[in-house]
């Protein structure tokens, strides 16, 4: 078999895989819509998903964002006044926390915690025929299993990003009090004057897109498991590596769009 054939076969395989994944995505969106409009049964799954993905990750997110805010303030306050641009500290904080690292770090935390968990859980469900049990009972597994996870992860990522911002921006205030005390009112004024609605919207859009990416990739790889339990860790690893790659690409695209 020649190289050309191999390349051809690989390309066809790739395109098929991509189309399949796209079909999966469309189906998830469709079923999520149905889940929302006809939600009655799966709300418990959604609640638990937000509990696991959102509430339980709050401490990690808070710790990271507080320390990140602190580091930015300390570095910023030692560097920026040298150029007479001390006021820029708020812009730096907002760019780093609100626009860039807030959504991205939150998404990475969610991928690491919940992306793997979802892939593993769904993989196990496939192995133990639970998915088939849903299918045969006439319960659409995309709607009953994937949709609440999709909503839960997206919502949790968004909420965690909001908390990340709150902790990061307020945490930096606490640190400022040690380095260069300024009154809360002045701090808030400076912060609010620098914070634009576009920053907030960009941050929110990013975290929603990231949450959707994490959920789609995690559920996709989880359901890709077919028979063997050995496929489960592979699915988990794929969901993390694939997920983080996609997050970074999406982040670049959104930032680009934002600046254009």
């Amino acid at each position: 078999m020649g190289a050309i054939e191999r390349i051809g076969a690989a390309t066809i395989g790739r395109v098929r895989g991509l189309l399949y994944a796209l079909g999966f995505m469309v189906d998830v969106f469709k079923q999520t819509f149905r889940f929302v409009t006809r939600r009655k049964v799966g709300s418990r799954v959604l609640t638990m998903q937000v509990l696991f993905t959102g509430v339980e990750a709050l401490s990690v997110v808070a710790t990271i964002s507080l320390s990140l805010g602190a580091v930015i303030v300390i570095q910023g306050l030692s560097l920026l006044p040298q150029f007479g641009q001390g006021q820029l500290i708020f812009d730096v904080l907002i760019i780093v926390i609100t626009r860039e690292l807030g959504p991205l770090l939150t998404a990475v935390i969610v991928t690491a915690r919940s992306g793997t968990a979802i892939s593993t859980e769904l993989g196990n469900m496939v192995i133990s025929h639970e998915i088939e049990a849903y299918v045969v009972t006439g319960i659409n597994p995309i709607r009953h299993i994937v949709a609440p996870r999709f909503i839960g992860v997206t919502l949790s990522t968004l909420l965690l990003n909001l908390y990340f911002n709150i902790f990061g921006l307020l945490g930096s205030f606490v640190v400022t009090q040690f380095v260069n005390p300024i009154p809360l009112g002045e701090y808030l004024n400076g912060m609010l004057a620098s914070l634009s609605l576009t920053d907030v919207v960009s941050s929110v859009v990013k975290s929603i897109v990231f949450g959707a990416i994490i959920a789609l990739i995690a559920t996709y790889h989880g359901l890709q498991v077919e028979r063997a339990t050995t496929e489960i860790p592979v699915a988990a690893i794929r969901s993390v590596s694939h997920g983080i790659t996609m997050l970074i690409i999406a982040n670049a695209i959104i930032t680009l769009v934002y600046y254009i």
Binding site: M48, L51, G54, V55, L162, L188, L197
Partner: peptide
């Protein structure tokens, strides 16, 4: 779980709304 998640959601939304109103 419902209560915990409720507080989690409401707090985030309230803080964000407050932030946006202040802005």
């Amino acid at each position: 779980a419902n209560q915990v998640v409720g507080v989690f959601v409401i707090l985030a939304v309230a803080l964000t709304v407050a932030l946006i109103v202040l802005m």
